[in-house]
Each structure stands twice: as structure tokens, then as C-alpha cells.
Design a protein around this nucleic acid. Structure first.
Lengths: 170, 170
DNA sequence: CAGGATCCGTCGGGATACTG
DNA sequence: CAGTATCCCGACGGATCCTG
């Protein structure tokens, strides 16, 4: 979801009455060549109606992987590749960017151990802990209301958080 | 969020073990000219890890406006333009498509009254009612943890669901 | 190990304009 | 009133190769 508007500034003209909305600015734009990296701003125009709190929250956990990442981190600190193992389909690039966003949003803490080989751990901040009920609500609903058949061998861990299979990883 | 993979079928080769994931198919592709309309399939590759229930739920309420729309509909049946009034920034096109998706996902009921001028009402299905706790969790968190200053005149309806201002509209 | 850099296609979604 | 029909931009995100 969520693209930027083409001309956020021009927009002020015709929307004076909700111009006071959050106008978070790009904070980290490498913009190498023509591949603008990390132009973080999900949707700038939160319509300031009562529902916008819902929107605001959703922005923070959208992004195709955020939800799952947060969910997995709820079980404890994880290293980069440990997270990757839990998300078989994610690419490094995606994992990195998603983690960076979560970091910037104050949800995860990134700890780099100055070693060789490098070791980076991701853990949750207290702020994210407050999100836990939300994540769990999402999961609960998904468990109850979605029917997507899945091979048991890798998808059957709905009760024990991580089964013994997780013994020797990492 | 969420694009399709370029070659979903090729993907099966290297991911036999979670090939059993939900493979929802495009259901309604007009594809007029080169503007493919409504190629519904958020992300087909739910990684089948325990967190995928979270993802599954998120898919259903992402889409930049879904959350707010659902939230507003929780207050009761609304007509098309009534919804638009609550989302100052949405375009007709977006409102239509979002509503169509919600309809297809079984969340909203679309009732057309064969009159002139046309009258279409949107209401929530029982299925969506089960989502209510989730929506409210999102809203609650947003209310508590996001600071986006807003002009009071249009953003100050956080207690009374819809203030008297909503008297004569529509 | 944990990424950075690049290239590139897909498609969400905004802005009009038109209509039964 | 409640939509379609188009045009079009650029963010999202996948694949691939490179590196301290």
C-alpha cells in the first residue's frame, strides 16, 4: 500500500483545512542514480477523520513483511539470518529495508557486535511491546478466519511458538 | 504494499516445500488496454511460518483505505458519498476499488437500490464484525501512540463517534 | 555474516473526464 | 448519485552481483 503523492507541497493549496496533518519528511534518501533508496513516507495524507488513528497504526505495520517480522521478534531477539530462516520468501534487500524502517519507527533495536564475522541482533523496543496486543489480535483473527491449506511440516506451529525444529538453528 | 511476483509459477521449482501455500488467483482482470484493473492478489507468497496468520490478516485490511473504511462502516450502513465525506482525500476510483475488494473478501455488503438517481448502500457482513476487535485494537493503539497534530475543527471527533456536524449531510 | 549497490518490472493509486 | 474509462507516475519490491 501507500505511495507518495507526486506533489505533496502543491497539495497544501487545496487542502488548507487539513494541512496540519502529519507531514513526516523523507529522512534517509540515498538516491543513488535513479533508484531512490528508502524514501520513507508511507502515505502522507492521513485524512484527519476519526478513523485516522486506524490508518496511522496500519502504516507502521504494513509493508508486506513488517507484521511477520514483528511477530517473530516477539519471541525474542534474533539475528539477521535467523529472521531470514523464518521468512523463507523474503530477500535480503527486503529484510534489510523493512528492518530499517522498523528501526526508524522505533520498533526494533539494532545491535551491532563489532566482530568478524559481523553479528547483528534485532530486538524489540518497549514501544513495540505496546503493539503486542495488536499483533496478537491480527494473528488470532487470521488463525480463526483464514483457510489456506498448508503442508504441516513447516506450517503447523500454531500452538507451541517454535517447535523443537528450532533447536539448532543459528 | 504487495506486488505479485513476476513469475509465480517458476517459483514452484525452488520452493517445493511450501508450494502448498495459498495460491489465490486473479479473479477479475479487465485489463483494458494496458491499464490492468483489479488484478486482485495481494501477495501470493504467504510464507508458511507461524506468523503467516498475521500476514494473512494484514493483507485483508491493507490498501491504504481499507482500515478507515471498515472503521467508519462499523458505525453503521453508509452510502457511497457518505463514505467519501468521511475520507476527504480519497478519490472515487480508489473508494470504488477498495469497496470492491472488501466486497469480494466478504467484508462488506453492497446493496443497490434500483432507483433514479442510484442509491447504493454499504454495510458490514457478520464476517467483518468478527474483525471489529482488530480494528479497535488498531485504533486504540493509534490514539495512544501516534502524535500527529491536527487542526481540531476536522480532527477532533475522537470520543463522540460522529458529532452533530454530521446532521444534515447526504 | 550482514549487508550495500544496481537494474528493472509490476501495479497501487492519483488526476481527470465521461456516463446510465 | 455512483460509478467507469483512461492516462500515467513512481514506490514497492524481486533478482542478482558485490563487499567489509
Amino acid at each position: 500500500m501507500a505511495r507518495m503523492m507526486s506533489a505533496p507541497l502543491l497539495n497544501e493549496e487545496k487542502s488548507e483545512h487539513y494541512a496540519a496533518c502529519r507531514q513526516e519528511r523523507t529522512f534517509n534518501a540515498h538516491s543513488v542514480g535513479n533508484d531512490t533508496v528508502m524514501t520513507r513516507i508511507r502515505h502522507q495524507s492521513l485524512d484527519c477523520s476519526p478513523g485516522c488513528a486506524v490508518e496511522a497504526t496500519l502504516q507502521l505495520i504494513d509493508g508486506k513483511w513488517k507484521g511477520v517480522i514483528l511477530y517473530h521478534l516477539l519471541q525474542g531477539t534474533l539475528r539477521f539470518n535467523a529472521i531470514r530462516k523464518r521468512l523463507p520468501n523474503i530477500t535480503q534487500r527486503m529484510l534489510t529495508t523493512q528492518l530499517r524502517e522498523l528501526e526508524r519507527d522505533g520498533f526494533v533495536l539494532r545491535t551491532v557486535y563489532p566482530e568478524v564475522p559481523p553479528k547483528v541482533e534485532y530486538s524489540l523496543t518497549p514501544r513495540e511491546r505496546t503493539l503486542e496486543p495488536v499483533i496478537m489480535a491480527l494473528k488470532a483473527w487470521g488463525d480463526e478466519h483464514t483457510e489456506f491449506r498448508h503442508g504441516p511440516e513447516i506450517c503447523a506451529d500454531h500452538d507451541g511458538i517454535f517447535s523443537p525444529a528450532a533447536k539448532g538453528i543459528e
